[in-house]
């Protein structure tokens, strides 16, 4: 699955200060997108229909498991996921609009190339 017919906009929450750059050009850094080796997937949220405040509230609930609140988020279009050759897997357990981006390569250099692509296609929203 590469998307959901009714949605096209995604958000990736950033929980670490070092994973985004605040000064110009403000941008997420590749570390914000890299998957853990144990899962080879990253979490994201369909945000099309959500007001700003609700996006952050969902981020808070997703971060509760690790006792962290999102400091920022990277907003991007589903087209970037296709371009990165990643797959979108619905994962509605934490939230109905929550998904995982799967299909990451094993090679760290290839992962970084994908992470940079997603950085380039994203808009950083600082909380």
């Amino acid at each position: 699955m590469t998307g959901s017919p009714q949605y096209s906009l995604l958000a990736r929450f950033i929980f670490q200060d070092a994973h985004y750059r605040k000064k110009a050009p403000a941008t997420p850094k590749p570390g914000a997108f890299l998957p853990k080796p144990s899962t080879l997937k990253i979490s994201a949220l369909w945000r099309d229909t959500l007001p700003e405040q609700e996006i952050w509230e969902i981020g808070d609930s997703l971060g509760a498991a690790r006792s962290k609140q999102p400091l920022a988020r990277a907003d991007f279009d589903v087209a970037a996921v296709s371009e990165a050759k990643l797959a979108i897997e619905p994962d509605p357990k934490p939230h109905p609009l929550h998904v995982n981006l799967c299909g990451w390569p094993i090679g760290k250099d290839e992962q970084k190339a994908i992470a940079l692509l997603l950085c380039a296609r994203s808009t950083l929203i600082v909380r």
């Binding site: 070092a18 850094k29 590749p30 570390g31 890299l34 853990k36 080796p37 760290k108 970084k112 380039a120």
Partner: peptide, 28 residues
Amino acid sequence: PEVSADPDGEISFDWIGPSGQMFSVSVN
């Protein structure tokens, strides 16, 4: 460069240029 920890415990060195060019090296 700006340094940070990757989710796999490697250390990343990131260079971000004025027009958004990026170069990143992870050391394990």
